[in-house]
Computed example of a mutant assay.
Amino acid sequence: MLIYNAEIHTMDSRGVIAKGWIDTENGKIKNMGEGTPNLIPEDSINAEGGILMPGFIDAHTHLGIIEDGLDFEGDDCNESTDPFTPQMRAIDGINPFDRCFEEARMRGITAAASSPGSANPCGGEIAAIKTNGRRIDDMLIKKCGIKFALGENPKNVYNGREETPITRMAITALIREGLYKARRYVHDMDSYYSDSENYDPPEYDIKCEALMPLLERKIKAFFHCHRADDICTAMRIASEFALDSVIIHGTEGHKIADIIAEEKIPVICGPVMCDRCKPEMRGLELKNASALHENGVKIAICTDHTVTPIQYLPLSAQAAIKGGLSFDEAVKTITVYPAEILGIDDITGSLREGKDADLQLYRKGENPLDLMSEPVLVMVSGDICRREV
């Protein structure tokens, strides 16, 4: 599929191509360039000067794992019978037929990270997925990390049962215990593989197995935390175990933006468009993303769907502009930056030859972040999901 006569926002070092074209084949961007292509097949799309850009990416959601319009039956987000569950996998709870996938596609959102919830100090494995498909295995981009949660959520869940953990100390201790066990498990496995005659393999432990890639820095540690002190606890744990880590929410990040920058830890900000629904969100400010960015922190904007419906991801980025972020940076927070944070930037998040054809097209002069805007063309891995041109 050839798309030509487009203002191409590449979201990489090439910036904006004022008049360009992109040719896709077998789900990938085959070629792209400036000007008018030499050959224009009959089934090509004339963008008529419209904005062609990568599909949006929501870096933190519970898409498909908390289903729309359902209560307990459709909520598979938290296995809150055990506070430490790294072996849980989001892909085993996601229903790709949830209608919110279509609502995401219709607004140009082509990928998202769907995560276990924050009831447990460790909730399980996060999946970066495409928003188009019928089988989650085919939609999976990457198993990108393990979800941890600090602060109010685990405290509330287990305090009601009079079970551990009911304090921040206990939450952190459980995480630390699990990581130390996994570290020892890795050591024992290494000993066995290097000298099987003198060492026996450790007894199989599914929790330790799930944490092994984390300790080897093959996947990332995603820490749910709102308050500044919880953010510092997350950074303390990350340092102690040499984890490649990410802060989710980071509501009070603006209070310690310089400290976060020193640690070189990215922050997925959001939800932006919500009320201060619990004590640890009292520090919610629209300026948060801007303050973090100005201090050199890599940021992404998220909806935390279903807290804010996923189709309002672009509007959430626009709200961050009201808080001081520039338009160009706001667009990056829902395209290339989340791709980099999730470790999928080799596949999506910007437009370049060889990457997946995750594209969206807007009419000339339209603001892609505006509430009233909708793409006239959406492609996910080369499949046309919406076409009005």
Rank of each mutant, 00 (worst) to 15 (best):
N38F: 01
N159W: 12
D58H: 04
C122R: 08
M106R: 11
Q360I: 10
G151N: 08
M11H: 11
M169Q: 10
K355V: 05
D188S: 05
T308E: 02
I166G: 06
E102I: 14
E152G: 05
M273I: 11
G15L: 00
V376P: 03
A210R: 05
V186A: 13
N132V: 14
P279H: 11
K207W: 08
I109L: 07
P83Y: 00
C77V: 14
A228D: 13
I65W: 05
H254N: 14
V186T: 07
A127E: 08
F223Q: 06
G382T: 12
A173W: 10
T348N: 01
N95A: 07
D383I: 13
C122M: 15
L342H: 00
K264M: 14
P37D: 02
R227P: 06
I299N: 06
D346Y: 00
N295H: 12
K181S: 09
E294K: 15
A18N: 12
N26V: 10
N288G: 08
C144Y: 06
H60I: 04
P314R: 07
N26C: 01
F223W: 07
P266Y: 12
E294L: 15
P201Y: 01
D275A: 11
S13N: 10
M273A: 04
L315D: 03
A238F: 09
I321H: 07
V331Y: 06
E25N: 08
A339W: 05
K155M: 15
I310H: 06
E197V: 12
P116Y: 08
G270H: 01
F101V: 03
I171W: 00
L39Q: 13
D23K: 15
I166V: 08
M212F: 04
T333F: 02
V307G: 01
A47L: 06
E103S: 10
I248E: 13
I247V: 13
T167L: 00
E209K: 08
M273R: 00
E73K: 11
R135H: 11
L284M: 14
A170T: 12
W21R: 09
